[in-house]
Simulated assay, not measured.
Amino acid sequence: MNTKQSSTYTISDLAKRFDITTRAIRFYESEGLLSPMRDGQKRIYNQKDYTTLKLILRGKRLGWSLAESRDLIQMYNPDSNNQEQYLKVLEKVQDSRERLQQQMHDIEIMLMELDEHEQRVKTAMSR
């Protein structure tokens, strides 16, 4: 489908576009995040569904839970300036950044411990 005039998509269109499975799309639909129209058994997704899926997948890449992404998506109001949503996104970004920085620190410590252990084993082997 995916014509420029209609801005509708089949489940296959979305799966190809976002490189995910149709099963994943049906899961997001079962979670109430996507609401395609139906043409018999065929699902027809609109631009809102496309954008919602894009935001879900972005949130997933950022390490956000589906519930967190849902909350942010549901805050969107096309009739407002969405400042509350933006502030919440900034808060989530900061949380993610802090979590990643902590993970990076933990990895650095683990690498130092591995280096020390490796050196002790090499020293023991050379005796």
Results as ranks from 00 to 15, higher is better:
26 R>L: 07
9 Y>R: 07
73 I>Q: 08
94 Q>S: 08
99 R>I: 13
54 K>W: 14
105 H>R: 09
94 Q>A: 11
116 E>G: 10
30 S>D: 06
126 S>R: 10
100 L>D: 01
81 N>C: 15
112 M>W: 07
37 M>Y: 08
106 D>N: 11
41 Q>H: 15
48 K>W: 07
123 T>P: 00
112 M>S: 10
16 K>N: 06
20 I>Y: 02
121 V>H: 05
20 I>Q: 07
51 T>M: 13
108 E>C: 12
65 S>G: 05
65 S>P: 01
100 L>Y: 08
122 K>V: 12
70 R>K: 14
70 R>H: 14
71 D>G: 05
73 I>W: 09
120 R>E: 11
43 R>I: 13
90 L>D: 02
16 K>Y: 00
23 R>N: 00
66 L>N: 02
14 L>G: 04
63 G>P: 07
104 M>N: 09
11 I>Q: 08
79 D>Q: 10
27 F>I: 06
115 D>F: 03
109 I>F: 10
112 M>C: 11
105 H>Q: 03
86 Y>S: 11
107 I>K: 10
68 E>W: 01
18 F>N: 00
72 L>A: 05
24 A>P: 00
48 K>A: 15
66 L>S: 01
88 K>S: 01
95 D>H: 11
4 K>Y: 07
115 D>V: 12
31 E>Y: 00
29 E>S: 04
115 D>K: 10
56 I>W: 07
80 S>D: 15
96 S>L: 10
46 N>K: 14
119 Q>N: 09
119 Q>R: 10
70 R>D: 07
27 F>P: 01
28 Y>A: 07
35 S>Y: 13
50 Y>R: 06
118 E>A: 04
1 M>Q: 02
91 E>F: 03
3 T>I: 08
91 E>C: 02
80 S>E: 13
39 D>Q: 13
57 L>W: 04
36 P>I: 00
66 L>F: 00
9 Y>V: 07
27 F>M: 06
80 S>A: 13
42 K>C: 14
113 E>T: 10
49 D>Q: 15
55 L>Q: 10
87 L>Q: 14
48 K>T: 14
3 T>L: 06
57 L>H: 00
110 M>V: 12
